[in-house]
Simulated scan of single mutants.
Amino acid sequence: MKIARIETFYVPPRWLFVRVETQDGAVGWGEASLEGYAEAVDGVFEALRDRLVGHDARRIEDIWQLAYRGGFYRGGPVLMSAISGLDQALWDLKGRSLGVPVWELLGGQVRQHVQAYAWIGGDRPDQVAEAAAQRRSQGFGAVKMNATAELGWLDRPAALDGVVERVLAAQAQGLDVALDFHGRVHRPMARQLLRLLEPLRLLFVEEPLLSEHPEALRDLAGHGGTPIALGERLYSRWDFKGFLASGVVDIIQPDLSHAGGISEVRKIAAMAEAYDVAVAPHCPLGPLALAACLQLAGCTPNVVLQELSLGMHYNQTHDLLNFVLNPEVLTPQGGLLSIPSGPGLGVEIDEAAVRAVHQERHRWRNPLWRGPDGSVSEW
């Protein structure tokens, strides 16, 4: 079971897949996607190959430690995304070699399915209502929407009224609603908006402020009872530690393709459980990232929700499923995603299709977002 090769593949629209193969022909797949920085993550694998080719693929924790500590400099989105994809691939390989899903290797199943939520858009209440009605017809019971797209860092208080109107339009379709602030607004604006939203009983608010401002988040956490979610821009248990200890977060959102893979997010979730904090993994990525999330959900008690990574494309382009030979395992039914029962991550990748599109080497970049005054805003 010694590692013979580690390959990476640029897969549209913006993903980076990882394939690990052992000397005896065993294969595992993972996803190291870091939106807009595929080339940087790919570069990390040059060093990882030098260190890990010839290593026993079954020693997943030892490989994780080597990858994290072996280069002296550690942490951050680029290195941790590379480690994430490698870690997923090793768990996939090990599960396949033993004929069991990853959740079986991590203590066994605690649930058969997890509630999914999908993204909706719309600048006006009528557009939001239409999008929400479509999600409802697809069986979803929960959606997430943008809270602050039109708001500046510090805007007119009356501008907040539109946010409330859009939430009410979605709730009128019988859906639970979560709001993503994207960390776009200044603390006084976020405080006012949370106060306005309090009676609406939201599922959660995401990144009301950027996680670079823990002291300001402590202030917000003391104003009202709407659950606060954050964590997609945190990359290790050490990044999450202070937020858990300070009590500012109710739901953490680690990304299994950014925060060290299955191994690390399993540890992050265990830390959160000790603080009575729920887990709702971030996942606007590809099929392997979603499959890894479902393996975590299958064996982790405090996972409560799963972002549906085809939320912006569902019933449109179906790009999430283009490279999967068994798409049914990633297709929601009645707003629920079932925990895959197949070996490894439970998804079968169309390797020929992946190799074909890799030749084009996508160059996806995050769109730039500017506020009403023309200044750069959070995307």
Rank of each mutant, 00 (worst) to 15 (best):
G225Q: 15
L209N: 02
L200Y: 07
T317P: 06
T226F: 03
E7Y: 07
F240S: 02
A4G: 14
E273R: 14
A4R: 10
L220E: 02
G152N: 10
T300G: 02
Q171D: 08
G224A: 05
Q138R: 11
H318P: 09
A133V: 08
S84V: 00
T148V: 06
K94L: 12
G247Q: 08
Q253I: 08
G107Q: 09
G141E: 07
D250P: 04
R237H: 12
L294H: 00
I262M: 02
Q127N: 11
H213R: 13
R96C: 03
D42Y: 13
S309E: 07
G25R: 07
L193T: 02
G25L: 06
P188W: 14
P125T: 08
G311S: 08
R363Q: 09
G162D: 10
Y73T: 05
I349G: 00
F45M: 11
V143E: 00
G242H: 15
D50H: 08
V185C: 09
I349K: 01
L210H: 07
A158P: 12
S263C: 11
L220Y: 03
Y68N: 15
V41R: 01
P332E: 04
A356C: 15
V248P: 06
R69H: 09
R363N: 12
V303W: 00
L288P: 00
F240C: 02
D239E: 11
F323T: 11
A352D: 14
A131Q: 05
H113D: 13
R363E: 11
M312R: 12
H362T: 05
P77H: 05
S84A: 07
H182S: 07
L368M: 11
A26I: 10
L305G: 04
R111M: 05
A272G: 14
G122N: 05
D319V: 09
A133Q: 07
R201G: 09
P12F: 07
A132L: 10
V329Y: 02
G43A: 08
L106T: 06
G261M: 00
E307G: 01
L321A: 14
L325Y: 11
E207I: 03
W119S: 09
F140P: 00
G174N: 10
E150D: 13
V41S: 02
A67P: 01
L93W: 02
L203H: 09
S97Y: 05
L325A: 15
G43L: 06
